[in-house]
């Protein structure tokens, strides 16, 4: 049990760092979606199933959809160019 929790926490913190450090904004949005999903797994392991369901549906699904659509409207939807602070 504790090893599973440590593994999920490690993945969560690593992708939280990736959100701040990745140069590509699409990759950063994907990393924040990974943070939300592993947070949902942690909620399920903490015996809070309703919160886990909500976090997986809204935090990982709806929120990354919103971010990705806003990214497209901002014109930053570029896969391989540096577009920081454009």
């Amino acid at each position: 049990m504790i090893w599973i929790v440590s593994f999920v926490v490690f993945i969560m913190l690593a992708s939280a760092l990736a959100v701040l450090l990745l140069p590509n904004l699409i990759a950063a949005v994907a990393a924040s979606s990974v943070v939300s999903l592993s947070l949902a797994v942690l909620f399920a392991l903490m015996k809070a199933p309703d919160v886990a369901m909500t976090e997986a549906a809204i935090g990982a699904g709806l929120s990354s959809l919103l971010l990705a659509m806003a990214l497209r409207r901002l014109g930053l939807w570029q896969l391989d160019k540096e577009q920081e602070s454009k």
Binding site: L20, A28, L39, L42, A48, S85
Partner: peptide, 22 residues
């Protein structure tokens, strides 16, 4: 520096706060 990335960091902060509350 980037405003969009600042929003992403705000989402992280909020996730941490909810984990602490649970």
């Amino acid at each position: 520096k980037n405003v969009f990335r600042m929003l992403l960091a705000l989402v992280l902060l909020e996730a941490g706060a909810s984990l602490l509350l649970i």
